[in-house]
Amino acid sequence: MFFVSDVMNTAPTAFQSPLQEKAYESLDKLLIPFERVETDEAISMEDCVEINRKLEMEMVKTLFLCNSKKSAFYLFITNGEKSFKSKDFSSALGISRVSFAPVELMESILGVKIGAATVFSLLMDTDKQVQVVVDQDVVTKEWYGCSDGTTTGYLKLKTKDIIDNFLPHAGYIPRIIKS
Results as ranks from 00 to 15, higher is better:
102 P>C: 06
139 V>L: 13
105 L>S: 06
139 V>E: 12
128 K>T: 03
137 D>C: 08
149 G>C: 09
115 G>R: 10
109 I>T: 12
112 V>Y: 07
115 G>S: 10
111 G>R: 00
115 G>W: 13
131 Q>V: 08
105 L>P: 00
101 A>Q: 07
108 S>V: 06
135 D>F: 06
142 E>S: 12
102 P>D: 15
133 V>M: 07
122 L>Y: 08
122 L>I: 08
124 M>W: 00
137 D>V: 08
114 I>Y: 00
134 V>L: 10
114 I>M: 09
102 P>G: 08
137 D>Q: 12
134 V>Q: 04
124 M>G: 00
138 V>S: 07
122 L>T: 03
137 D>K: 09
126 T>N: 09
117 A>P: 04
125 D>V: 05
137 D>M: 07
101 A>T: 10
139 V>C: 13
111 G>P: 13
149 G>D: 09
130 V>S: 04
139 V>K: 14
132 V>I: 11
117 A>R: 01
132 V>T: 03
131 Q>S: 12
104 E>I: 15
141 K>T: 12
118 T>Y: 00
112 V>N: 07
148 D>E: 13
147 S>Y: 08
125 D>S: 03
142 E>M: 13
133 V>G: 00
112 V>P: 06
146 C>R: 01
136 Q>I: 01
113 K>T: 15
119 V>F: 04
134 V>F: 06
141 K>G: 05
101 A>D: 12
148 D>T: 14
139 V>S: 05
149 G>F: 12
147 S>M: 12
123 L>S: 09
128 K>S: 11
121 S>Y: 02
109 I>V: 15
128 K>Q: 08
144 Y>S: 03
146 C>A: 14
133 V>R: 04
126 T>W: 01
117 A>T: 15
118 T>M: 05
124 M>K: 07
123 L>T: 04
106 M>E: 13
119 V>Y: 05
114 I>A: 08
141 K>F: 00
101 A>L: 06
147 S>K: 11
137 D>I: 02
124 M>Q: 15
129 Q>K: 15
147 S>R: 09
128 K>E: 05
113 K>A: 05
142 E>I: 13
129 Q>H: 10
133 V>Q: 04
149 G>V: 14
120 F>Q: 02
136 Q>D: 14
135 D>C: 05
107 E>S: 14
112 V>L: 09
144 Y>I: 01
110 L>F: 10
133 V>P: 01
125 D>A: 06
112 V>D: 05
120 F>W: 10
148 D>Y: 00
146 C>K: 03
140 T>L: 12
115 G>I: 10
143 W>Q: 06
106 M>G: 15
109 I>A: 06
145 G>L: 03
143 W>A: 04
122 L>G: 02
132 V>F: 04
140 T>E: 15
131 Q>H: 10
103 V>R: 11
127 D>K: 14
112 V>G: 04
146 C>W: 02
101 A>H: 05
126 T>A: 08
113 K>I: 08
116 A>C: 11
106 M>Q: 13
134 V>N: 05
126 T>Y: 07
144 Y>M: 02
115 G>A: 12
145 G>Y: 07
120 F>E: 01
129 Q>W: 10
139 V>T: 12
136 Q>A: 14
124 M>L: 03
124 M>I: 03
122 L>R: 02
